[in-house]
């Protein structure tokens, strides 16, 4: 499959520009046309920072290396004006907390019309008509009433639907959804995930779904990339990863989650994620890995393709 986004050797660091602390330490990742890619990892693994950096949303605070290619352009090379033209229109983002992404003192309608005017050049009646259509499309009843509402008058789930309407307003090719359902209740989460998948499939768009919940990945994604301490440690098709994960971290994660069907005891990963400052030259997972070698502590494993689109960064893996 042809990639729509290709991240190559991306590193993102914070703090002193001379000696930054690297939150993302060189990752390669492709998003293919029409696929839903899940990006999982625990807090601090760099999953959000990767895409915030790629879209230039970290401002001057971050040092960036590597390249992020989107349709022949390197996003890291683009200026503010070119990026602004791309963001929202070609690449849309949906964030975790809709309440803090929406403007509390403007009606939902006004914010949505603004996005439509900006990305599609529609104005007046045409823009308002399109706004109503979008609100209906994301499953909100009584769109005329919703247009007049302020975000605080809507529930979290309804606000997230508004955010989704804004995200698809520009008919984007790629949607980055960063924990879009983490703040919602399970029954609402299920509704929102169903809606996102349906919209992406219908529009033929691609989506990156950033989440900490492997269950969400299992139910919505085609492929999954697992991040740990600023690296992608394993990538592969969802079925394959859940059936035979190769990286000890991925396997550990799968053993940490109880299921609704079996009573298999949980096997936690001992210890906690290392600080960016503590990571030396070796494998970042070596301190918690139960299959660790002396070798792992001194040398960082490179990413190895195992086959069928499945790859992992671990010395234990052989092609």
């Amino acid at each position: 499959m042809e990639p729509i986004l290709r991240i190559a050797n991306l590193a993102v660091g914070f703090g002193s520009p001379v000696a930054p602390l690297w939150a993302v330490r060189g990752i390669d990742l492709e998003v293919c046309k029409g696929e839903i890619l899940g990006l999982v990892g625990e807090s601090g693994s760099g999953k959000s920072v990767t895409f915030l950096a790629a879209l230039g949303l970290l401002g001057g605070r971050a040092s960036r290396k590597g390249s992020v290619r989107f349709e022949g352009l390197d996003l890291l090379e683009l200026g503010d004006r070119e990026l602004t033209a791309l963001r929202g229109r070609r690449i849309a983002m949906i964030f975790q907390d809709p309440m803090s992404s929406l403007n509390p003192v403007q009606t939902v309608g006004k914010q949505l019309v603004e996005a439509i005017t900006l990305h599609r050049g529609l104005a007046g009646q045409a823009a308002r008509g399109e706004a109503r259509r979008l609100l209906e499309r994301v499953g909100l009843s009584d769109p005329d009433e919703r247009m007049r509402n302020y975000p605080h008058q809507l529930s979290g789930g309804m606000n997230q639907r508004v955010m989704i309407a804004m995200a698809i307003a520009g008919k984007p090719d790629l949607i980055i959804a960063d924990e879009p359902t983490t703040a919602l209740d399970v029954t609402i989460q299920a509704q929102i995930l169903d809606l996102l998948v349906e919209l992406v499939r219908e529009e033929g768009a691609s989506m990156v779904l950033i989440t900490h919940d492997l269950g969400v990945v299992a139910e919505t994604c085609d492929r999954v990339a697992v991040m740990y301490a600023g690296r992608v440690v394993e990538v592969g098709p969802v079925e394959r990863i859940f059936a035979r994960a190769e990286h000890p971290y991925t396997r550990g994660l799968l053993h940490c989650i109880p299921t609704l069907e079996s009573d298999v005891p949980l096997r936690p990963i001992e210890g906690s994620v290392p600080d960016a400052a503590e990571i030396g030259g070796g494998c970042a997972f070596a301190t918690r890995c139960d299959m660790v070698h002396d070798h792992c502590r001194s040398t960082s494993p490179s990413f190895l393709e195992i086959g069928a689109g499945h790859g992992a960064a671990c010395f234990r893996v052989s092609a």
Partner: peptide
């Protein structure tokens, strides 16, 4: 039933679970 069916599950060999989706809030 709806609450349990809304929990995103890791794939298991048991096959697909019934999907019950609640409407509204």
């Amino acid at each position: 039933q709806a609450l349990i069916s809304a929990v995103p599950e890791l794939r298991t060999s048991a096959g697909p679970r019934p999907r019950i989706r609640l409407q509204g809030e």
